Simulated scan of single mutants.
Amino acid sequence: MSRKQQRGEATAEQLLDAALRVYAEAGDQGLTVGAVTKASGVSLGSLYHHFGSIDGLLNALLLRWLGRLLDELVEALRGTRTAHTGIRALVTAYLGFVQEHREAALLLHSSYADRAGMADGRRLRDAQEARLSPLAAWARTYVASGELAPLPPALIESLILGPVIGISRRWLSGVDDVDLDEAAVILPERIWRSVAAEPNREPYGRT
């Protein structure tokens, strides 16, 4: 990589880091070109050169942190040997990420992220395909082995991550009745009951 390319990457990183700080302090309404250039010390021209617009910058920031979250979930599964322990690892990793990266978690669980997912969900998933594939393969493996219920992959994903996302949103909103450490102990068993295979149960959808 040339020095020019290295400088370009460093500038893009500065802008992304500054955008996250501004977003955490002021939300998406406060994430303006002026606020980001002031916080980063990077010129307006550089911002437009690297990201095209403030929306382009915010989309890049969202993809950056979604990728990091998915990387941590995939890594958490590597050391597990059963579906049961895999679910515990996923829940623990997700909630740990939210606690460790609160600013990024605010963005990932924001109304902006929801709107982006609704408007362009397929593109977002396609952009993360390399990271999502191991998670899907994990679920298929344990459905095939009979440990997970024979449910469609999208339902398994929702049953596992839905409660975790919900409790994360509640904690991030500032509600003081949520203890993520306690949730990391309780949720895995509750989730396991919802996705564990039932003996002699036919796959859903079959008659």
Rank of each mutant, 00 (worst) to 15 (best):
Arg3Cys: 01
Arg7Cys: 08
Arg7Gln: 13
Arg7Pro: 02
Glu9Asp: 15
Glu9Ser: 15
Ala10Cys: 07
Ala10Glu: 15
Ala10Met: 14
Thr11Pro: 00
Thr11Gly: 01
Thr11Phe: 03
Thr11Leu: 10
Ala12Thr: 01
Ala12Phe: 05
Glu13Arg: 15
Glu13Cys: 05
Leu15Ala: 04
Asp17Trp: 01
Ala19Arg: 03
Leu20Thr: 11
Leu20Pro: 09
Ala24His: 13
Ala26Cys: 03
Gly27Val: 10
Asp28Met: 09
Asp28Val: 15
Gly30Ala: 06
Gly30Tyr: 09
Leu31Val: 04
Val33His: 02
Val33Ser: 03
Ala35Pro: 06
Val36Trp: 04
Ala39Lys: 09
Ala39Cys: 11
Ser40Ala: 15
Leu44Asn: 13
Ser46Pro: 02
Ser46Asp: 10
Gly52Trp: 11
Ser53Gly: 02
Gly56Leu: 13
Leu57Trp: 05
Leu58Pro: 00
Asn59Phe: 08
Asn59Tyr: 15
Leu61Phe: 09
Arg64Val: 04
Trp65Leu: 01
Arg68Gln: 13
Leu69Asn: 01
Leu69Phe: 06
Leu70His: 14
Leu70Cys: 10
Glu72Ile: 07
Val74Glu: 08
Val74Met: 08
Glu75Gln: 15
Ala76Asp: 08
Leu77Ser: 05
Gly79His: 11
Arg81Lys: 12
Thr82Gln: 04
Thr85Tyr: 09
Ile87Arg: 02
Val91Gln: 04
Tyr94Ile: 01
Val98Cys: 09
Glu100Leu: 11
Glu103Ser: 14
Glu103Phe: 05
Ala104Ser: 06
Ala105Tyr: 05
Leu107His: 03
His109Gly: 02
Ser110Gln: 10
Ser110Met: 14
Tyr112Val: 02
Tyr112Lys: 01
Arg115Ile: 09
Arg115Phe: 06
Arg115Ala: 15
Arg115Ser: 05
Arg115Cys: 00
Gly117Pro: 11
Met118Ser: 10
Gly121Glu: 10
Arg122Leu: 14
Arg122Cys: 02
Leu124Asp: 02
Leu124Val: 14
Arg125Lys: 09
Arg125Val: 05
Asp126Arg: 11
Ala127Val: 07
Glu129His: 12
Ala130Val: 14
Ala130Ser: 14
Arg131His: 13
Leu132Gln: 13
Leu132Ala: 04
Trp138Ala: 03
Arg140Leu: 13
Thr141Ser: 15
Val143Thr: 12
Val143Asp: 04
Val143Trp: 04
Gly146Glu: 05
Gly146Gln: 04
Leu148Ser: 03
Ala149Gln: 14
Pro150Glu: 09
Leu151Ala: 10
Leu151Cys: 10
Pro152Ser: 11
Ile156Asp: 00
Glu157Ile: 03
Ser158Gly: 14
Leu159Glu: 12
Ile160Ala: 08
Ile160Cys: 12
Gly162Arg: 07
Val164Ala: 01
Ile165Gln: 12
Ile165Cys: 01
Gly166Trp: 11
Gly166Ala: 08
Gly166Leu: 08
Trp171His: 11
Trp171Ser: 09
Gly174His: 12
Val178Phe: 02
Val178Arg: 01
Asp179Gly: 00
Asp179Gln: 02
Leu180Thr: 07
Glu182Ser: 10
Glu182Phe: 11
Ala184Trp: 01
Val185Lys: 12
Arg190Leu: 14
Trp192Ser: 00
Arg193Lys: 12
Pro199Gln: 09
Pro199Met: 09
Pro203Ala: 06
Pro203Thr: 08
Pro203Arg: 06
Arg206Val: 12
